[in-house]
């Protein structure tokens, strides 16, 4: 055996050799850009081959940046909206599908998952048609006697429209998460509860919900991260992503515009760092709230 094979077969080196492909890609394409972005956020970069350190000026400017404020508010509203819609509804549907009382549950599961597989260009086109003044949604609203709305033309209706789109797109995926969590709950617990005389609601409230906690934590955090990073939904729903009156302006979209349209890379990097911090802090709170830091037992 030569030295190379000795090295590869050694107990210390082998794990690193196996991990190397991932680690190298991770360092080059994830860690390095993040470090670079943090560095850029302290620089004034407006144009090719420009760049000088300007301290925290980019961060100070954010405080008085009107559009950043609007984007932060919109993104927060959107995240709260998706949390309200995308946790309970998929949870309830998953429990129903899992209960064995639904005929052809697999068919429903497949149908509900289909939106996640649909091409985004198609989704954008279809939803623009659905939300059109004479579109499907308004027809349905008129059927129940309510006032039709100009969904895509009024700033205040942008976030509801985006939440609607997100609900359609992500419900199926969250159902899958909850379903896999439900599989792990032993049926014997339910049987025991039934013998004790518990009704369906009590079983859901006292058994399903508490035992699903790790899954729920996971889905909540994913939804929060997805909510704060929202980019694709406004981009496909509005031409070029530009919503009327900035009603659908999201943080990620503003970062993109600041970098690639205004060519203000320093400011865009600063926004990115702030966004990362928000997500980091919210995730920490979540972990604490759900007790993920407590030792088992």
């Amino acid at each position: 055996m030569n030295r190379l094979t000795t090295f590869i077969y050694s107990r210390k080196a082998a794990p690193w050799v196996f991990l190397a492909p991932f680690l190298i890609l991770f360092l080059v394409f994830k860690v390095f850009p993040v470090v670079l972005a943090v560095l850029m956020s302290f620089q004034k970069i407006q144009g090719i081959n420009t760049g000088e350190f300007n301290g925290v000026a980019n961060y100070e400017a954010l405080a008085s940046n009107v559009r950043f404020g609007v984007a932060l508010r919109n993104t927060t509203l959107y995240t709260v909206g998706t949390l309200i819609v995308l946790i309970p509804i998929p949870l309830i549907i998953a429990v129903l599908l899992d209960s064995g009382r639904v005929v052809k549950a697999t068919v429903f599961r497949t149908i509900l998952f289909l939106p996640a597989l649909t091409s985004l260009v198609v989704v954008g086109t279809v939803f623009r048609a659905v939300l059109n003044p004479t579109g499907l949604l308004n027809s349905a609203i008129e059927q129940v006697g309510a006032q039709p709305q100009r969904w895509l033309e009024v700033a205040e209706l942008a976030i509801p429209s985006l939440i609607l789109l997100a609900a359609w797109r992500w419900t199926g995926i969250n159902i899958i998460y909850f379903s896999s969590g439900l599989v792990n709950i032993s049926k014997e617990i339910y049987e025991a509860a039934a013998i004790d005389g518990a009704n369906a609601f009590q079983m859901f409230w006292r058994i399903t919900l508490p035992l699903l906690r790790p899954t729920t934590l996971f889905v909540v955090i994913l939804t929060i991260i997805g909510g704060f990073q929202v980019f694709v939904e406004p981009y496909i729903l509005y031409p070029g992503g530009q919503s009327p009156g900035d009603g659908g302006l999201s943080l990620a979209y503003l970062i993109y515009r600041t970098a690639f349209n205004s060519f203000n890379l320093g400011s865009a990097a600063a926004m990115g760092v702030v966004l990362a911090l928000i997500i980091f802090i919210l995730s920490l709170i979540q972990f604490r709230f759900f007790g993920a830091f407590q030792r088992e037992g």
């Binding site: 407006q46 144009g47 090719i48 081959n49 349209n261």
Partner: peptide
Amino acid sequence: AKFPTFMKGEIQ
């Protein structure tokens, strides 16, 4: 509308 972006810094 994109042209001015390319006029910033060292013009390429």
